[in-house]
């Protein structure tokens, strides 16, 4: 099992971010969410031990078969791969 870290903010649904701690695009994505004031949960996959990491990777692969990061999943419906600033803004500013 692994735990998601919670960042408080406006409720725009269930926003989950799978990220890597050393990845600059992941950091830009986190910063964008914070600038937008959106509440979200995240996990740094590279900081997990082997088993929880495999668990996260299996989850990410359902949405993004290449298993690349950042991967953002909104309300278990929509997935945004990479730091796609416009797409993220659009999805989280106007309620998707």
């Amino acid at each position: 099992m692994y735990e998601l870290e919670r960042v408080e903010g406006d409720n725009r649904g269930d926003v989950r971010l799978y990220a890597i701690s050393t990845c600059v695009w992941c950091r830009r994505t986190k910063k964008l969410l914070e600038d937008l004031g959106v509440g979200y949960s995240y996990v740094f996959v590279d900081l997990l031990d082997r088993d929880p990491r495999s668990e996260v990777e299996a989850e990410v692969m359902k949405w993004n078969p290449r298993c690349s990061f950042p991967t953002m999943v909104i309300d278990n419906k929509r997935c945004i791969v990479g730091f796609q600033e416009e797409e993220i803004r659009e999805a989280l500013t106007y309620g998707g």
């Binding site: 890597i20 990845c23 600059v24 695009w25 992941c26």
Partner: peptide
């Protein structure tokens, strides 16, 4: 900085934007 962190973690410059 990410490369240097990975050098300490793994002993080589694993890509900072991928899971090694």
């Amino acid at each position: 900085e990410g490369l240097l962190v990975n050098e300490k973690r793994y002993g080589y410059w694993a890509c900072p934007c991928r899971v090694a």
